[in-house]
Simulated scan of single mutants.
Amino acid sequence: MMFSGEYIIFLCLALVALAGGILMLSLSKVVHMVVALVFTFVSIAGLYVLLSAEFVAAVQILIYSGAITIIMLFGIMLTKHNDQTFPHIKRWKKLLILLSIFLFAAVTFRSISAVPFDGQATGLHEENTKQIGIELYSTFIIPFELTSVLLLVALIGAIILAKKDDEEANESEQ
């Protein structure tokens, strides 16, 4: 059986994504977890490129690998916490986690293999950024706007909570 270059790249990116996810769950230091998460984000962006969704891949790199990771690192650095290792997970819990991962992979593989892939999709590679924009601002305009309102409420809530913490810190100093 001959493997194409696209298939080999897919396997490499999928392995990096899985390894990053597993490392994120199994590492003990929070900063190392964030670095493992970055590997997962970047490999998922590579998978988007393989699917000819270059715009989504660029957004994945800019938003998740860049902005979200920086926000997580700032959150880690600006909060008071002891960077101690987590208590050791018992052996039977590790085996249960491993069994759950393999069970999930088996169910996912079976579900995907049951889908009939009849024909080659045409037109997906043409102007995909334009297609995303049309769908986003026509079909999905209400969820898009609700998401922006939700993010605004979260931002206002974070400002209020930060202001309360600042006021309590000033009162305790006096």
Results as ranks from 00 to 15, higher is better:
Met2Asn: 03
Met2Ser: 02
Tyr7Met: 09
Cys12Phe: 13
Leu13His: 01
Leu13Val: 00
Ala14Glu: 03
Leu15Arg: 08
Leu15Gly: 13
Leu18Pro: 00
Ala19Asn: 06
Gly20Ala: 11
Gly21Thr: 11
Leu23Gly: 13
Met24Glu: 06
Leu27Gln: 07
Phe39Tyr: 11
Phe39Cys: 11
Val49Ala: 05
Val56Asp: 01
Ile61Pro: 00
Ala67Phe: 12
Ile70Ala: 12
Gly75Glu: 10
Leu78His: 07
Thr79Met: 15
Lys80Arg: 13
Phe86Trp: 14
Lys93Ser: 13
Leu98Trp: 13
Ile101Ala: 15
Phe102Thr: 10
Ala105Ser: 14
Thr108Tyr: 15
Ser111Trp: 10
Ser111Thr: 04
Ser111Gly: 15
Ala114His: 03
Pro116Ala: 10
Thr122Met: 06
Gly123Leu: 03
His125Arg: 09
Glu126Gln: 07
Thr129His: 14
Gln131Ile: 01
Gly133His: 06
Phe140Tyr: 14
Ile141Asn: 08
Pro143Glu: 14
Phe144Lys: 06
Glu145Ser: 10
Leu146Pro: 00
Val149Ala: 13
Leu151Thr: 05
Leu152Pro: 02
Leu152His: 03
Ala154Phe: 13
Leu155Arg: 02
Leu155Trp: 05
Ile156Phe: 12
Ala158Trp: 10
Ala158Ile: 10
Ile159Asn: 05
Lys164Tyr: 12
Asp166Asn: 08
Glu167Trp: 10
Glu167Leu: 12
Asn170Phe: 11
Gln174Tyr: 08
Gln174Pro: 00
Gln174Arg: 10
